[in-house]
Computed example of a mutant assay.
Amino acid sequence: MIPLNHNLQHLFSIAQKPSKMGIGLMSGTSLDGLDIALCKFTGNGLSTHFELMQFITIPYPDSFKQEVQQVFARRNADLEKVTLLNAYIGSYHAELILQALDQWHVEPQEVDFIASHGQTIYHAPQRLHQHKNYPNATLQIGDGDHIAVKTGILTISDFRQKHIAARGEGAPLALYGDVLLGNKPGENRVLLNIGGIANLTWLPGDGDFSRVLCTDIGPGNTLIDAACRKYFDKPFDEDSVIAYSGTVNGDLLTALLSHPFFKEKAPKTTGPELFNLDIVAEAQEQSGIKQISNQDLVCTLSAFTAASIASFIRENISGDDIKIFTSGGGARNPFVVGELKKLLPETLIEDSSTMGINPDAKEAILFALLGNEALCGEPIRIGVNPAVLMGKFCLPV
Rank of each mutant, 00 (worst) to 15 (best):
L200M: 08
P379W: 02
L395W: 04
L348V: 15
G118H: 03
F209G: 12
Y231H: 10
K132D: 15
V71H: 02
S63K: 11
E285Y: 09
V68F: 06
T347R: 07
G28A: 07
S308D: 03
P379S: 05
N249I: 08
A307D: 05
E373M: 13
L85C: 09
A227E: 00
T83S: 14
L223C: 02
V336N: 00
I58M: 05
I217H: 07
Q295P: 12
G319E: 04
I357S: 01
G196I: 04
S47A: 15
F325A: 05
P185M: 05
K290Q: 13
E51Q: 12
T247W: 03
Y244L: 13
L252P: 02
E350Y: 02
P185T: 12
T57F: 02
S302A: 08
V388L: 08
E107M: 14
S13E: 10
P204D: 07
N294E: 10
N136D: 14
I56K: 09
G196A: 04
S258T: 10
N276D: 14
N385Q: 15
E238S: 10
A94R: 01
I380H: 01
L79S: 14
K342Q: 15
A307W: 02
N221G: 06
K323W: 07
I313L: 09
L34I: 13
R211D: 09
D102W: 08
D62M: 14
E378D: 13
G220M: 11
T347V: 13
R189S: 12
M26H: 08
L370H: 02
G207I: 10
G118V: 09
S63D: 11
L203K: 06
K342D: 10
A281T: 12
V241S: 15
K184Q: 13
A198L: 12
D320K: 14
C376S: 14
E187S: 11
Q126S: 11
R127W: 15
I217A: 10
P185L: 08
T151D: 04
G170N: 00
T326A: 03
K341D: 04
A255C: 11
P359T: 07
K184H: 14
Q119I: 10
G218Q: 04
D278H: 12
I2P: 08
A226Y: 07
H117W: 06
D35S: 15
K20I: 15
A137L: 05
T247I: 13
I2G: 07
R75I: 13
T269G: 01
G43A: 08
I217S: 07
D143N: 08
E346L: 12
L274F: 11
I313E: 01
I313M: 05
P260K: 03
M53K: 11
G177V: 07
N249G: 09
M26T: 12
G144N: 09
L343Q: 11
